[in-house]
């Protein structure tokens, strides 16, 4: 699920206060509201407290121990964090994840926006059906997508290397090549998600009033100038949302890495989550893996706070 909240500080503040008047009456009413409010929130809130909030704290505790899942853990202080930032494999995983995010985010957004602008035209053949088709990869699991692409690009039996060889291009063994493995797993993620972002962009484009384009055209603005002066500013809130979602999912990448490369060749596609998984569940270094998890959490939290301040600023600008 990918949504983010709209913060309405004003609404929250006014909600807590009541409207004045006969305060005794208000007191009963308020007490009743307090009770029912928390009662309604209680079941969902307990799930979140038990399975998100508590484990977050628990993860921090585990990260301060040498827990393997099999031993009796003892306290080791910040050792795991020191390791997570100093050992070459972890640094490599952090760098890979950042490289992945830097490659994936602009690419998927660029492709999605480019296609959205074309799909927003009225003169397209079977527009609705094409939109549905392009959205399709989003509902297929990354596992299946990764299996299918592995087969398609297999250097010996895959269709793609064969077709490329016909037009004189010899593709390398993409998944076993240190240079190409990372771009390949990025490509699969772009393929899977560009339709999703495109649909969001189309909705954003339809929110831009057509007369703005007409006015720009009257002023003699070229298509490119119209794009810069009308389209991009009109897409500002959509763009913020899309960028945050894309970066966040990039930092959580695991599935296609597990299926297509296993982190290889030579750890060139090993991401943070992949390393958390292998260290925590196959090498039984839970303390160390938890420290890495916390690095991931810190990154996500930072992105979240940036998003919060941007959307606050956008609301202020609109107001």
């Amino acid at each position: 699920m990918t949504t983010n909240p709209v913060l309405e500080p004003a609404a929250i503040e006014s909600a807590g206060k009541s409207r004045g008047g006969r305060w005794k009456h208000r007191y009963n009413f308020q007490r009743h509201a307090n009770r029912t409010g928390w009662l309604f929130a209680a079941p969902g809130l307990s799930i979140l407290l038990a399975f998100v909030f508590f484990p977050a704290g628990y993860a921090f505790w585990i990260s301060l121990t040498d827990s393997s899942g099999l031993n009796k853990p003892s306290f080791v202080g910040l050792d795991n964090y020191v390791q997570a930032f100093t050992d070459a494999d972890s640094q490599n995983a952090i760098v890979n994840t950042v490289v992945y995010a830097i490659g994936y985010t602009p690419l998927v957004i660029g492709v999605a926006l480019f296609l959205a602008i074309f799909l927003n035209r009225k003169d397209l053949f079977l527009r609705g059906a094409q939109r549905t088709t392009i959205f399709m990869p989003f509902i297929i699991s990354m596992a299946v997508a990764a299996l299918a692409w592995s087969f398609i690009i297999n250097p010996n039996t895959g269709l793609m290397p064969y077709w490329f060889s016909k037009i004189g291009i010899n593709l390398p063994d993409l998944l076993n090549d240190e240079t190409w493995a990372m771009p390949t797993v990025i490509f699969v993620a772009v393929w899977k998600n560009f339709g999703y972002f495109m649909v969001i962009f189309i909705a954003g484009l339809q929110g831009i009033p057509p007369d703005q384009y007409e006015a720009a055209a009257l002023d003699g603005a070229s298509k490119w100038q119209q794009f810069k002066a009308v389209t991009l500013p009109g897409l500002r809130p959509t763009m913020t949302y899309v960028i945050i979602i894309a970066i966040n999912t990039a930092f959580q990448t695991f599935d296609q890495i597990y299926i297509m490369t296993g982190g290889g060749p030579l750890r060139s596609t090993e991401t943070i989550v992949y390393r958390v998984y292998t260290e925590g569940f196959t090498n039984f270094r839970q303390g160390y893996a938890s420290a890495l998890s916390f690095v991931l959490m810190a990154i996500t939290l930072t992105i979240g706070l940036i998003q919060l301040s941007i959307s606050r600023k956008q609301e202020r600008d609109l107001a």
Partner: peptide, 26 residues
């Protein structure tokens, strides 16, 4: 309009920023 709604809101936002991948081990 219950008391503590702002608190609940804040709690939820904090919770949303925790990726489940970082909670696998606990």
């Amino acid at each position: 309009p219950f008391k503590g709604r702002g608190l609940l809101f804040g709690l939820l936002i904090a919770t949303m920023m925790i990726p489940f991948q970082s909670l696998l081990i606990p």
